[in-house]
């Protein structure tokens, strides 16, 4: 069984649940940016929850299957087509031998997760099959898919689940205007009071530089940092700090102009002040925001972040228990 990549799509890469424990050496977790959709697609098929899938950003790939095989597509709304015929999202369907699977342009959300029976078979690197392109690590030769690539699958352990569908209540509804919850902190004391408040009162627009490393935001008022004598080793810009680790989800604002939210392929550290961190329960949503859509940041406490985390865990548990 092989899958030929006819067209790679815009930025299609092999991802799973990622690798932990290597960030101190500069290797970020990687893995699907929307873990909930990645796991839902695998669970629908009866794959291991963390099997390797294709993460397809904004424009999907075109794939030819050598043998008949079941797949499930969750996440962004990009209608799948088998030999041109529309197929359902969030439901297991079969791709017959020799057929071509393609996708329509994205209607909502930004990333679709295509799980294939058994899961994609590439070597594990540091405990994960996820692609970390900046470090040429994992996935297929450490890079996104290219035309001419050939994918192989691991053997499937379960019977075919054709027609199995995600319960309506577990299908995420995508928006054009997101509220992202943020725990303020880290270096936000470096901002003026006015800037610290205004950051949470304005709409920000996602810039075209929005990828697995980070999401850049535009359109809000520039933020002012409090004037000071630069500490030794920090650099002269008021937004500089002595190079430090960057938490996943942290928001930095180089020179006070365009905030960047770091995601799962984050650079692990650097010299820009971070002013808060998106809560873990909202990180999947970040990966589903398209360039030019709007975001408002909402300050929350740790207790609220933990409550949202508990709700997220309940959704994941419901996915695992689905009929």
């Amino acid at each position: 069984m092989t899958i030929d990549v006819i067209k790679p799509g815009l930025a299609t890469s092999i991802q799973d649940t990622g690798r932990q424990g290597h960030y101190h050496l500069g290797i970020p977790p990687s893995g699907g940016m929307d873990q909930r959709s990645l796991r839902a697609a695998n669970l629908l098929l009866g794959n291991p929850e963390g099997a390797a899938v294709l993460e397809c950003a904004l424009m999907g790939p075109e794939l030819r299957f050598s043998e008949s095989c079941c797949v499930a597509a969750c996440g962004a709304e990009m209608t799948p087509r088998v030999n041109g015929e529309a197929q359902p999202l969030n439901e297991v369907f079969r791709v017959p031998a020799g057929a071509t699977l393609s996708f329509d342009f994205v209607k909502a959300g930004a990333r679709l997760y295509l799980a294939i029976e058994g899961g994609i078979d590439v070597p594990e690197k540091l405990g994960s099959r996820s692609t970390y392109a900046l470090g040429s690590l994992g996935g297929l030769d450490g890079r996104p898919l290219q035309a001419g690539d050939q994918l192989t699958l691991l053997p499937s352990a379960t019977a075919s689940r054709e027609g199995r569908r995600l319960p309506e209540s577990l299908i995420p509804v995508f928006s054009r205007h997101y509220l992202l919850r943020v725990v303020p902190g880290i270096y936000d004391h470096r901002l003026t009071d006015e800037s610290r408040e205004r950051f949470y009162e304005e709409d920000w627009t996602v810039a075209s530089e929005a990828d697995r490393i980070g999401y850049r935001m535009k359109g809000g008022s520039p933020l002012s940092f409090i004037e000071r004598e630069p500490p030794f080793g920090a650099g002269d810009d008021p937004s500089n700090i002595v190079d430090a680790c960057y938490p996943i989800g942290s928001i930095q604002v180089p020179s006070g102009s365009e905030p960047i939210i770091l995601h799962r392929d984050a650079v692990s550290g650097g010299g820009y002040a971070m002013i808060g961190t998106v809560i873990s329960a909202d990180m999947d949503w970040v990966g589903q925001i398209q360039p030019h859509q709007k975001v408002r940041f909402v300050p929350v406490s740790l207790e609220e972040a933990l409550a949202a985390r508990a709700e997220y865990r309940e959704v994941m548990e419901a996915l695992r228990q689905m009929p």
Binding site: I186, F232, A234
Partner: peptide
Amino acid sequence: YSLAADEFMFVELSEEMT
């Protein structure tokens, strides 16, 4: 000691490099 949301704790030991 600063909370970076619910999964990270960030600890600054000195503002300047020493």
